[in-house]
Design a protein around this nucleic acid. Structure first.
Length: 343
DNA sequence: AGGTTAAGCGCG
DNA sequence: AAAGCGCGCTTAACCT
């Protein structure tokens, strides 16, 4: 494919893979999509081929003949941060972001007389960052209950929340997420398509408005170097080997992992606590609801239709109460005939 | 036949 | 020199 795109058609090879080959990934093809009709066709083909090979064809062929369902395996010890993973098949990466993809999700249906209930934590990692950092501005944003990305944009750009543009909100959202991943100004610039100076300016304004977040991140880095590990709110540790590597890239990567792990790991701890109490509660009831899946910040159930409001309320109460943070743990729950409709 | 690596891409 | 965290699956290429 590289030969056709870059040698025969002479399109510019703008990106390279880690091994030095000309990249044909999504970002690389997007960059040359205006120069020739082929890149767009390849992108469309890839998206559809992925859906078909990984989901449409595969899930249909692994339906268990005895139960008529697909059954995943969950793993408690596979993820560094403490999340559970899912395999054979992985039910934690069922498509949701595109309309074609959501048609896969619509195949996850409840039996006659039952409905699908999907309950997910709203912005759980950002709320945990507010709690762990104690930053006044971020705490206030969540305590007031509004749109946190809009609130961030208002702070960073010096506007009233109602005057924030869609693009400014998008930038603020990228900053909020990027920070939790240890992103640099370089990475933010690439993500937003602005120059490095502008991205640096955004980050500087963010940290001046949320100084507690900055202090928390620095403290996390220092603790990681001092102790060789970081930990979640509940004290589960992640040891990081590469913090002392002579290789600068490995060391920087370990620092980013260290910054992220308290948030991702605490979120994993919280949903595990919720799963324990929800499961125990359902076990005390008549058999009208089953917990089916966990997708990092979401739990999926099948529920007898006549019990759905009671179960929804009970699930929300237990998920929200799974930890006492200095901000509310908001849970959003939807109901439908299939998993897509439940969102 | 079965394993490994690289590239790419689905999700939170 | 690299530049955003955490996974699992498919395909192609290559190896034992």
């Amino acid at each position: 494919m590289q030969a056709i795109l870059f040698d025969e058609l002479g399109l510019p090879a703008k990106l390279k893979t880690p091994t030095g080959q000309p990249s044909t990934n999504e970002e690389a093809l997007e960059a040359i999509a205006d120069d020739h009709p082929l890149p767009r066709l390849i992108l469309d083909y890839r998206g559809l081929a992925k859906l078909r090979s990984t989901y449409t064809d595969k899930l249909a062929e692994i339906v268990n003949p005895r139960t008529g369902r697909v059954h995943t395996s969950y793993h408690q010890g596979a993820v560094a941060t403490g999340r559970v993973s899912s395999s054979d098949p992985n039910l934690q990466n069922i498509p949701v972001r595109t309309e074609e993809g959501r048609r896969i999700r619509q195949a996850f249906v409840a039996p006659e007389g039952w409905v699908v209930l999907a309950a997910d934590y709203s912005q759980i990692e950002l709320r945990i960052m507010a709690h762990l950092s104690g930053d006044e501005g971020l705490l206030k944003a969540f305590q007031e209950g509004g749109d946190v990305h809009r609130a961030t944009a208002a702070e960073v750009f010096g506007l009233a929340p109602e005057d924030v543009s869609a693009n400014q909100r998008r930038a603020a959202k990228a900053i909020n997420f990027g920070l939790m991943y240890g992103m640099s100004a370089f990475g933010l610039a690439r993500q937003l398509g602005v120059d490095r100076g502008e991205a640096s300016d955004y980050m500087a304004r963010y940290f001046s408005r949320y100084p507690g977040v900055h202090a928390f991140m620095e403290a996390t880095r220092q603790q990681a170097h001092r102790d060789g590990y970081v930990e979640t709110l509940f004290g589960r540790r992640l040891y990081l080997e590469n913090l002392t590597s002579r290789n600068q890239a490995l060391r920087a990567g370990a620092e980013r992992a260290a910054v992220n792990a308290p948030m991702q790991g605490t979120a994993a701890d919280i949903i595990k606590r919720a799963m324990i109490t929800v499961h125990a509660w359902l076990g005390q009831r008549k058999d009208d609801a089953h917990m089916l899946m966990q997708v990092h910040d979401e739990l999926v159930f099948e529920v007898r239709a006549e019990a759905v409001e009671e179960v929804r309320a009970g699930v929300i109460e237990r998920m929200s109460g799974a930890a006492q943070l200095s901000v509310p743990l908001l849970v959003e729950a939807g109901v439908g005939a299939n998993w897509d409709e439940a969102h």
